[in-house]
């Protein structure tokens, strides 16, 4: 396992970009690119990342970057991968997409590319809503959450996209978090050297969208793991494995209370007792399910 001191000093996504202070997506992207290095093509659909990279003629990306319409990135990356193959160029193609572009509008496209097992690395940074439009619900938004289009709290649970991706039979699926950088870094390193469609989903807090104080974004990401709200795992060639940062928290008695996580964020301020019960039930069920899957072939 890589230690924090071993992370490269090189920066591939430069400072001075357009993100908000405390933005999780840029923490994630910065470290993902450290793991991937220079030989990578980035494909980015409509999202906060289209804005964060900075407008023409500036760009914070020091690797080639193709912007695409919202639903198109997995297909555009497929075309790019095939073209590089015909032209005999050996580089990684990485999609960097939001949860809206992955869970919702782009799902057919992502599923198509996964079913074809295109040789690309698909990364979804999950900030649990459409942040670029000002914070609106996506199917990644957890139950009970306030967004601009769920003013009294979302009625539905978060969609389990990592398991849906795993059901495609692709070689690698993982969840990661910006609070556990070395775990994230190692997952990217591993995925980088694999062939076929690789899916990694990174938990990425959004300070304005979550009504979260700037300095609390890493802390809230850590709590998401410690409360069981966001379990970290890998599914490598069909075998499910809980990742080290989540290991201790599969047991209910070890988990921190959900309210520790909720109280940092304005998006959960209105939650009632019964909402918290429902969310707790969801966390209990998922944690139990994952504990029973640990170490087993699940697809």
């Amino acid at each position: 396992m890589t230690s924090i001191k071993q992370l490269p000093y090189e920066e591939y996504f430069l400072a001075g970009n357009g993100s908000c202070p405390g933005c999780g997506l840029t923490i994630g992207l910065r470290n993902v690119l450290k793991a991937l290095g220079k030989e990578v093509y980035m494909v980015v659909p409509a999202s906060c990342s289209s804005v964060v990279q900075s407008p023409f003629p500036n760009s914070s990306a020091t690797v080639p970057l193709l912007n695409t319409p919202f639903a198109a990135s997995a297909a555009a990356a497929s075309g790019m991968v095939r073209a590089l193959k015909v032209m005999g160029r050996d580089s990684v193609v990485m999609v960097w997409a939001g949860d809206g572009g992955t869970f919702d509008i782009g799902l057919a496209t992502v599923s198509g590319a996964a079913e074809r097992n295109e040789d690309l690395l698909y990364i979804c940074y999950d900030n649990e809503a459409y942040m670029n439009t000002g914070g609106h619900r996506s199917s990644a938004t957890p139950l009970g959450t306030f967004t601009g289009t769920t003013p009294t709290g979302k009625r539905e649970n978060k969609k389990n996209i990592p398991l849906i991706m795993a059901a495609h039979g692709i070689p690698y699926v993982a969840t990661a978090s910006i609070a556990f950088i070395t775990d994230l870094y190692d997952k990217i390193l591993k995925a980088k050297d694999m062939k076929g469609f690789r899916y990694i989903q990174i938990f990425s807090p959004c300070t304005p969208g979550w009504l979260l104080p700037t300095e609390k974004s890493v802390e809230s990401a850590k709590l998401a793991v410690q409360t069981g709200m966001y379990p970290l795992f890998e599914i490598e060639n069909g075998i499910f494995k809980i990742s080290a940062p989540s290991k201790a928290y599969l047991k209910k008695e070890k988990r921190k209370p959900l309210t520790d996580y909720f109280k940092l964020q304005g998006r959960f301020k209105h939650l009632k007792e019964e909402d918290i019960k429902l969310i707790e039930k969801w966390v209990d069920e998922i944690s139990e399910e994952y504990a029973s899957m640990d170490g087993k072939k699940v697809v």
Partner: peptide
């Protein structure tokens, strides 16, 4: 989108 991705490189 495939045509676009291919042409872009």
């Amino acid at each position: 989108a495939v045509a676009m991705g291919a042409a872009s490189v």
